[in-house]
Design a binder for these strands. Structure first.
Lengths: 112, 112
DNA sequence: GGCACACTTGACAATTTGGCCAAATGGCCA
DNA sequence: TGGCCATTTGGCCAAATTGTCAAGTGTGCC
């Protein structure tokens, strides 16, 4: 892998890595319906606010969300709505994986 | 986040995490052009074959690639070509992030 | 100024990940 | 069977990730 390709893959990986966490996926899913304050997200997720704040910082660093201050609250919103398009494909992969597992079990049952 | 949602997000995260690594992204990109043996991929990536094998195992566990044995070689191919659709969006996010940085620099220059 | 509120950051421990080496496995052929 | 080749697996260590608590920052209000 030449240097140029490596750098491009690293940049891409950074974006994917930012989304590759249950809480952060949930945040993205939630923000797709409109902006949210950190407190709201914290309540929905159910863990420490500092944890949520750090997840949001990661998403922001990746360019997936952006923040807006209003008085003492900070509202986050989705700046890259195209990531919502990932979910259809991911659900497909999950379904396909499940199907494969069923087939494997069937094959074992068949054999016995 | 209720249990059901949490499980779904974890499943989705597993698929994304499988792709969220430079070498694994490169593998996916390469396999999009047709199947490859582990040795070929190892040569292209330029690290230990055992490392590549483990990356492939992760992609396979996530249901993104599948393997086919032919004599002593193992050929991998992309079973979820829809993941290629991620790249357009990711490139968008990266471009947008770059643009944002330029604007920030401009703002600083403006101020001085 | 001082206080309360929403949020972010730093320090830290626990867990996971990534890479290499060496050893094991699987399949072909003499 | 034994040897060879491609690949996988296990052991190990360094580095990255995650979460929590405590302390810090920023904003509005009295």
């Amino acid at each position: 892998m030449d240097q140029r390709t490596k750098l491009r893959m690293e940049a891409r990986a950074k974006v994917l890595k930012a989304m590759a966490h249950p809480s952060r996926l949930f945040i993205v899913d939630t923000l797709a319906n409109g902006e949210c304050s950190v407190a709201e997200l914290t309540k929905l997720i159910g863990c420490d606010m500092s944890t949520v704040s750090k997840h949001l910082a990661q998403l922001k660093a990746a360019g997936i969300v952006s923040d807006r201050r209003e008085a003492s609250q900070v509202f986050y919103s989705l700046t890259a709505p195209c990531v919502m398009g990932f979910f259809d494909c991911i659900e497909n992969v999950l379904r396909q994986g499940l199907q494969t597992q069923i087939e494997l079990v069937d094959a074992v049952v068949e054999r016995n």
